[in-house]
Measured scan of single mutants.
Amino acid sequence: EINATPKGWSCHWDRDHRRYFYVNEQSGESQWEFPDGEEEEEES
């Protein structure tokens, strides 16, 4: 699962919740759901 993350994302293990979470390396935002690989940036 770690190697399957889309480009620009990293996968980390949360010991407290015993599950993986994903970090967007560009924005620093994290989420529980597996990233779909589409950038959802809304910068103007």
Results as ranks from 00 to 15, higher is better:
His12Val: 08
Ala4Glu: 14
Ser44Val: 15
Glu40Gly: 13
Phe34Val: 11
Arg19Ala: 10
Glu38Ile: 12
Glu39Trp: 08
Phe34Glu: 10
Ser10Gly: 03
Lys7Phe: 06
Trp13Ser: 01
Glu41Ala: 13
Glu29Gly: 07
Glu43Asp: 12
Asp36Val: 11
Lys7Val: 11
Lys7Thr: 04
Glu43Ala: 14
Glu41Gln: 14
Trp13Asp: 01
Arg19Val: 03
Asp16Tyr: 06
Glu40Ile: 14
Tyr20Gly: 02
Phe21Ala: 08
Asn24Gln: 04
Gln31Ile: 03
His12Asp: 02
Gly8Met: 02
Phe21Thr: 10
Ala4Leu: 13
Asn24Phe: 01
Trp9Asn: 00
Gly37Lys: 07
Arg18Asp: 01
Gln26Ile: 04
Glu29Met: 11
Glu40Asp: 09
Gly37Cys: 10
Arg15Gly: 12
Tyr22Gln: 04
Gly28Ser: 03
Ile2Tyr: 12
Ser30Pro: 08
Arg18Gly: 14
Asp36Phe: 07
Asn3Arg: 09
Glu33Lys: 07
Gly8Glu: 04
Trp9Gln: 03
Ser10Leu: 05
Asn24Trp: 01
His12Pro: 00
His17Lys: 15
Glu1Trp: 11
Arg19Cys: 08
Glu38Gly: 11
Pro35Gly: 02
Asn3Asp: 15
Glu33Ile: 06
Lys7Glu: 15
Glu40Pro: 12
Glu1Leu: 10
Arg15Gln: 15
His17Asn: 06
Gly37Leu: 09
Glu25Pro: 04
Asn3Gly: 10
Tyr20Glu: 03
Tyr20Val: 08
Glu33Met: 05
Ser10His: 03
Pro35Gln: 03
Trp32Leu: 13
Trp32Gly: 06
His17Trp: 03
Glu38Pro: 14
Glu42Pro: 13
Trp13Lys: 03
Glu41Phe: 10
Ser10Met: 05
Phe34Trp: 09
His17Val: 08
Tyr22Ala: 02
Gln31Lys: 06
His12Lys: 08
Asp36Tyr: 03
Glu33Thr: 10
Ser30Leu: 12
Trp32Val: 10
Val23Arg: 11
Val23Phe: 05
Thr5Lys: 15
Trp9Val: 02
Arg19Lys: 11
Phe21Val: 15
Gln31Asn: 01
Asp16Cys: 07
Asp36Ile: 11
Glu29Val: 09
Thr5His: 03
Gln31Val: 09
Ile2Asp: 12
Asp14Trp: 00
Ser30Thr: 14
His17Glu: 15
His17Tyr: 09
Asp36Thr: 09
Trp32Glu: 07
Tyr22Leu: 02
Glu29Asp: 05
Gly28Lys: 08
Asp16Lys: 09
Pro35Ser: 01
Trp13Glu: 04
Gly8Thr: 00
Ser27Met: 02
Asn3Leu: 07
Asp16Val: 07
Val23Ser: 05
Pro35Glu: 03
Ser30Val: 15
Glu43Ser: 14
Glu39Asn: 14
Lys7Arg: 10
His12Ser: 04
Tyr22Ile: 03
Glu25Trp: 01
Trp32Asp: 05
Glu42Lys: 13
Tyr20Ala: 06
Ser27Ile: 00
Glu38Arg: 12
Thr5Gln: 05
Pro35Asn: 01
Arg15Phe: 08
Glu41His: 10
Gln31His: 04
Lys7Leu: 06
Gln31Phe: 04
Arg19Pro: 00
Glu33His: 04
Gln26Trp: 06
Gly28Gln: 05
Lys7Ser: 07
Trp32His: 09
Glu39Ser: 11
Glu40Phe: 09
Tyr22Pro: 00
Gly37Met: 07
Gly37Ala: 12
Phe34Met: 11
Ser44Phe: 02
Trp32Asn: 01
Ser44Pro: 10
Gln26Thr: 10
Gly37Ser: 10
Tyr20Lys: 06
Phe34Tyr: 10
Glu42Asp: 14
His12Trp: 02
Ala4Val: 09
Ser10Val: 08
Arg15Val: 10
His17Gln: 15
Glu29Ile: 11
Trp9Lys: 02
Glu41Val: 14
Asn24Pro: 00
Gln31Trp: 02
Arg18Trp: 02
Glu29Leu: 09
Ser27Glu: 04
Glu41Asn: 10
Ser27Phe: 00
